[in-house]
Computed example of a mutant assay.
Amino acid sequence: MRFINIKAEVDPADYKAFAFPYKGVVFDMDGVLVDTEYLEQRYLEEYAIDSGLDVSDGERMALVGSSGADFYGAIVRWWDRAGVPLDIAGARASYAAYVKGEYTDNYQSVMNQGVPETLRALKEMGVKVALASSSSKKTIDKVLSDCKIAQLFDVVVSGEEFRQSKPNPEIYLHTLERLGLCADDCCCVEDSVPGITAGKAAGLTVLAKREERFGFSQDSADEIIDQIPDLLRRAEPAGV
């Protein structure tokens, strides 16, 4: 059997003669394609401290993988607890003014290792590739544009299209429908508890990109991978 050193840089052309065991792969975005969750937590902690808000580490970390509605809803609750009434729009404006585009100006600077190469390798093997993210469509478009990977996705779905995003499986069920594939034919790549829960509830094989900075468990995933290119370990020479 021929082996490819996926720890080195992936050459998508090496996968032309390989077959992948799934017809489709659905990727989460934050924490999987781009390492934004860590930066979000850092800025959120500083924002709470500088704003005089009493927020525990557990409250902050519970927002990893959450939708925008849940994220800004939590900020509204924190301000309300401090005796300051604030609506969702006010929470967005307050937090945006604090962060000042520190990492959102160019998401390519926080893109995880081997993402474009892995996506291209999957395409070489004839795999359909989708994105199902709890983030807003505006943010998703910015990330894909900055990272120059928009053209590599067959389907892109935002959690803002649904009443409830992850851990509700609806976003994954909708993505599968748009791909024209059943859950048994696909796997997804996640990192957070809400995402893993949503993927499992939709019947997908869930691969979790290892995340040990936030104190949550990824044990309910089917497999944990260290880097995005590790996904390609499942590929085998065609005809084997």
Rank of each mutant, 00 (worst) to 15 (best):
A93L: 11
D35P: 07
D14W: 08
G24W: 00
W78D: 10
A91H: 11
R92Y: 05
S56N: 03
V10I: 15
L63I: 12
S94P: 09
S66M: 09
A91W: 08
A13I: 10
G24H: 03
G24F: 01
E45M: 08
V64I: 15
Y22W: 15
D50N: 13
Y95S: 05
S94Q: 02
Y43K: 09
V32S: 01
G31D: 09
Y22A: 07
D80H: 14
D50T: 15
D70S: 14
D11A: 07
K23S: 10
G24C: 09
A82D: 04
T36Y: 02
Y47I: 12
Y22L: 09
Y43Q: 04
S51I: 11
S67T: 15
R42N: 11
D11I: 15
A48R: 09
R42Q: 07
D87L: 09
V25T: 07
W79E: 13
V55N: 03
P12G: 07
E59N: 00
Y47L: 15
R42C: 01
Y47D: 11
P85K: 08
V26W: 00
V10H: 02
Y72L: 12
F71Y: 14
R60L: 13
A17D: 12
D11N: 15
L33C: 11
G58C: 01
E40G: 13
A17R: 11
V64G: 04
Y47N: 11
E40R: 06
D70T: 14
S66Q: 10
F71R: 11
A13T: 14
V84L: 06
G24V: 04
A13C: 02
I75F: 04
I49T: 15
F71S: 04
T36V: 11
L44D: 05
D54G: 00
A82N: 10
F20K: 06
D87H: 13
R60M: 14
A17L: 08
W78I: 13
E45A: 14
D30P: 01
R42H: 03
V10E: 06
D30A: 04
A74G: 07
L44A: 10
V32W: 01
A93I: 12
K16C: 05
D14C: 06
G52T: 13
